[in-house]
């Protein structure tokens, strides 16, 4: 007798001695079963979360498409000639820019990709030699696990086996979540056409690559600062360059692990944050930051109301009998 209330108290808020002695056994059972329900419920919720995070962890290990392509930008080679910008413009049939491609005044402010320029080159001061400014080519980095694709509510983004992240304007309704999700501030919105929403960004010349070609910027670069090839080959070559020229490069391949790895890789002679590369990026894919929570939402929304409802119903019925 004495131990029943003890068991009751933690389990189900049943005040001591409230139940007639005859019903104590039954009350104990009811309380226990309710506790079991709560335990089951918690376990279900926990399993939902644990299950999701286990799945996410597995994602990080997936090698997926080992032959996927990539680009390597060696920022120590770039001389800021803007030939890549011009080649990109021609290859994508973009409008002629207001300022010609051989104009240096564009370097006076930092630019970002726009609807009419999928790639831009920005100039930075060189801490090692003021005579030789540094340049950074900016374009979509084609993440292995793209944040834009995970943020898009209508699946307008596709990660292709070739490595490029493509965008389909036919399903896009212009919410611009991708612009917020992108850690590199890449997707640009075409404000010229309000009735035909369109996000624009680099496609890593997917059409040319599918036909055995290479992206226009890589083909045009006069100094070999932009090279195209198998991502794994690029990483190997980048490591080799760092190993052979430890004084020339910082010992880091930007994009190898950042946000789960990107197709576009970079080598630099100065720390990357000096060239405005985001320095606060996690190594896990951005998808992981939200996937665990978001994948639990449907389960929580469907299972929890039912279970809580059952819990409530059982309690109410019991109280009704009294």
């Amino acid at each position: 007798m004495a131990d029943i209330p003890k068991r009751n108290i933690p389990g189900g808020n049943v005040p001591e001695g409230q139940h007639p002695s005859g019903k104590n056994e039954e009350a104990g059972k009811a309380t226990l079963s309710r506790r079991r329900v709560l335990q089951t419920l918690a376990a279900a919720g926990g399993a939902t979360l644990v299950g999701a995070s286990a799945e996410v962890f597995a994602d990080n290990k997936i090698k997926g498409w080992p032959d996927r392509k990539g680009m390597l930008t060696d920022l120590t080679e770039c001389v800021g000639c803007r030939t890549c910008e011009k080649a990109c413009n021609r290859a994508n049939g973009l409008p002629e820019p207001e300022v010609p491609f051989d104009e240096k005044s564009v370097f006076e402010k930092k630019r970002r990709p726009t609807a009419s320029a999928y790639t831009v080159v920005n100039r930075y001061e060189n801490p090692k030699s003021s005579d030789k400014p540094l340049y950074r080519k900016v374009q979509c980095n084609h993440c292995n696990e793209p944040g834009c694709a995970s943020a898009c509510p209508v699946r307008a983004y596709t990660k292709t086996p070739e490595g490029a992240v493509l965008y389909n304007k036919d399903v896009c309704f212009g919410c611009r979540y991708c612009m917020v999700a992108c850690p590199f501030y890449v997707p640009a919105y075409d404000y010229e056409s309000a009735l035909d929403p369109r996000i624009v960004k680099c496609t890593m010349c997917h059409g040319r690559v599918k036909n055995g070609g290479i992206p226009a910027c890589a083909e045009a670069c006069p100094v070999g600062a932009v090279t195209f090839g198998k991502r794994s080959d690029l990483i190997r070559a980048a490591r080799e360059r760092i190993r052979k020229n430890p004084d020339r490069y910082v010992d880091h391949i930007f994009g190898e692990y950042e946000v789960g790895g990107t197709s576009w890789l970079y080598l630099s002679g100065v720390p990357f944050d000096r060239l405005d590369f985001p320095a606060n990026l996690v190594e896990k894919p951005l998808v992981e930051q939200t996937k665990g929570f978001l994948s639990a939402v449907p389960l929580v929304l469907t299972i929890w109301p039912a279970l809580l409802g059952m819990c409530y119903a059982s309690t109410r019925n019991k109280e009704g009998k009294e």
Binding site: E77, P222, V223, G224, F228
Partner: peptide
């Protein structure tokens, strides 16, 4: 030539000249 993989291990002719 500037095919896939060109210039990864060794600069292409154009790149070598410029460099």
């Amino acid at each position: 030539s500037a095919g896939p993989g060109a210039g990864i291990d060794r600069p292409t002719l154009k790149a070598a000249y410029h460099q």
